Computed example of a mutant assay.
Amino acid sequence: MEVLVEKLQQAFQLTSDLVEGLEASQLSLGLGELPSNRIGEQLWCVVGARESYFKAIQKSEWAGFNCSLINVASKPEIIERLQLTQSDIIAFLSGKTLSDKQVDLVIDLLTHEIQHHGQLIRYLYGNGIKFPKSWRQKYSL
């Protein structure tokens, strides 16, 4: 469990590093003519998944998707939600023994976070945005 929490914490930190390096105006960027939402909307999904999976992990069952992030164009609000969800989840998981169902939900959360990293890589490439050092090192960008 300790390794899983460490991997989750690393993924969360990578997401934070990316957002902190973005300019607020970049949150409204999409992928040109390609069907896509906006960077801020990708982050809305990240926050919502963290909140929803956290609730599911606590209850040992899926309880639906909800997201408290209101303004997907507000960098301060996104950073606040990312920090809060990271600290809540890591504090809850640290030192706990989880059921197999809970571990499965933690793995689903980690998978979801990393899947968004892949999507966000496309957004940054597509918009000529520089990657943070942590992303260049982790993903060989």
Results as ranks from 00 to 15, higher is better:
8 L>Y: 03
17 D>C: 11
90 I>F: 00
7 K>P: 00
55 K>V: 04
133 K>Y: 10
140 S>G: 11
135 W>M: 04
58 Q>N: 13
128 G>L: 09
16 S>K: 12
72 V>I: 12
110 L>I: 05
51 E>T: 03
52 S>W: 06
20 E>A: 11
80 E>W: 04
130 K>C: 15
27 L>K: 00
39 I>H: 00
87 S>W: 06
71 N>Q: 08
59 K>V: 05
114 I>E: 15
139 Y>S: 10
109 L>H: 01
35 P>D: 14
33 E>L: 10
127 N>M: 11
9 Q>M: 04
61 E>S: 11
94 S>H: 07
105 L>G: 04
11 A>T: 07
114 I>K: 10
14 L>S: 04
56 A>T: 00
6 E>R: 06
39 I>S: 09
114 I>R: 05
99 S>K: 15
115 Q>F: 10
53 Y>C: 02
46 V>W: 01
64 G>A: 08
22 L>R: 02
60 S>L: 07
124 L>V: 06
41 E>F: 11
45 C>W: 11
122 R>V: 14
108 D>E: 12
126 G>C: 08
130 K>I: 10
127 N>H: 09
60 S>T: 09
113 E>S: 08
4 L>V: 00
15 T>A: 11
17 D>T: 07
70 I>M: 11
84 L>G: 07
68 S>A: 15
42 Q>D: 07
88 D>E: 15
40 G>H: 03
49 A>N: 09
100 D>C: 08
117 H>D: 05
76 P>H: 15
123 Y>F: 15
89 I>Q: 04
21 G>F: 11
115 Q>M: 08
55 K>Q: 08
137 Q>N: 06
103 V>A: 03
87 S>E: 13
95 G>Q: 14
5 V>R: 02
126 G>A: 13
111 T>Q: 13
126 G>M: 08
19 V>P: 03
69 L>S: 00
37 N>P: 06
107 I>H: 05
17 D>E: 10
61 E>H: 12
41 E>V: 10
35 P>L: 14
98 L>W: 02
57 I>M: 01
58 Q>K: 11
41 E>R: 12
96 K>N: 14
3 V>W: 15
115 Q>H: 07
50 R>L: 01
128 G>Y: 13
3 V>Q: 14
89 I>A: 01
44 W>E: 04
117 H>K: 10
140 S>Y: 08
54 F>K: 01
99 S>H: 14
9 Q>W: 14
8 L>K: 00
127 N>K: 07
64 G>D: 13
128 G>N: 08
139 Y>H: 06
64 G>W: 09
